[in-house]
């Protein structure tokens, strides 16, 4: 059996779902060691692993891109991993590529499917899957939402091995603080109906069209990331990886392509209806119903019937 190290991601005292997803998958593929940095109290949550390696130091009490990479690199150098699994998350992105270069081993990123000898990456905004052959020691970064988290949630008392922290004297990155998002006017995570606008909406002048439709449906407006980056809507309306996770009764998308980072935030919705003129848009792989009409025709057509 191959030896798989799973880099545990935790935030504000709890283990993140991506870790359980990876643990569940890793168990199918080999012997699992969880690498838990900065909070050894969480080891008891990692029953799916055969062993947990913990590293603690004051510099590791909050996530620190430089100190964490250094620590993971040290753990991997001292261990017997054949494969290192890292989340393709904000924290994981600070580790995976750097580890691959430091260890001089391959990295396969955006993994959504994994077998013992191959990893499938979701690329091109979810439009193309790319399978890579893996053999020998490697790093794999896993797209959140790819594997069931429940498969990796297990009670148990894995063997815990405490490792000394590396020397952090040369570390230049210092954690300062966390900035919490400002509360919005509506909480999109509690809405039954969300009408979600994407880049297909073209301009901020068209946002009122979406607002009107949402009001008629008794719901609120949410959106994809570019809408927030363009400052057409506030951050509290963003659904996805760096936004919010939502599970409304209806999620109606207008001009959203369905990039993996968006899908992460909405694929659990009870009913997903997608409107997109591109019949190959990945959003249709996740929607229950799809429509390839122009959204500027669809909105008035729908509004007039409500």
């Amino acid at each position: 059996m191959s030896s798989i190290y799973v880099i545990v991601e935790h935030f504000k005292g709890s283990v993140e779902d991506i870790t359980f997803e990876m643990l569940g998958k890793a168990k199918e593929l080999g012997d699992v060691t969880a690498v838990l940095i900065g909070n050894k109290a969480l080891a008891s949550d990692l029953g799916a692993a055969a062993k947990v390696i913990t590293v603690d130091a004051p510099e590791l009490s909050e996530f620190n891109p430089e100190a964490y990479l250094k620590t993971v690199n040290e753990v991997v150098s001292n261990g017997d991993a054949d494969m290192v699994m890292v989340g393709n998350t904000s924290m994981g992105m600070d580790i995976a590529a750097g580890l691959s270069v430091a260890q001089n081993i391959p990295l396969v990123a955006y993994a959504s499917q994994m077998q013992a000898d191959s990893v499938t990456s979701q690329l091109y905004g979810g439009k193309v899957n790319v399978e890579s052959a893996v053999s020998g020691k490697c790093v794999v970064s896993v797209l959140p939402g790819s594997f069931p988290a429940d498969a990796g949630r297990a009670d148990g008392a894995p063997a815990v091995e405490e490792m000394a922290a590396p020397d952090f004297s040369g570390v230049k990155v210092k954690f300062r603080k966390l900035i919490e998002p400002e509360g919005g006017d509506v909480d999109i995570t509690t809405q039954d109906v969300l009408v979600s606008a994407g880049r297909g909406i073209q301009s901020d002048e068209n946002i009122p069209l979406v607002e009107e439709l949402a009001a008629k449906l008794g719901g609120a407006v949410s959106c994809s990331r570019p809408i927030v980056d363009n400052k057409w809507l506030g951050k509290t309306r963003q659904v996805g990886k760096s936004g919010l996770k939502v599970k409304p009764k209806l999620y109606l998308t207008l001009g959203i392509s369905g990039a993996p980072e968006h899908i992460e935030g909405m694929k659990e919705a009870d009913l997903i209806i997608a409107v997109n003129t591109d019949p190959n848009a990945p959003i249709f792989d996740y929607a229950h119903y799809g429509c390839t009409a122009d959204l500027f025709d669809l909105i008035p057509a729908l509004s007039s019937k409500l």
Partner: peptide, 14 residues
């Protein structure tokens, strides 16, 4: 400034 999920931002000095 680095974004985490849920709109939380971490601030680092370097």
């Amino acid at each position: 400034q680095k974004e985490y999920g849920g709109g939380v931002v971490a601030e680092f000095e370097v």
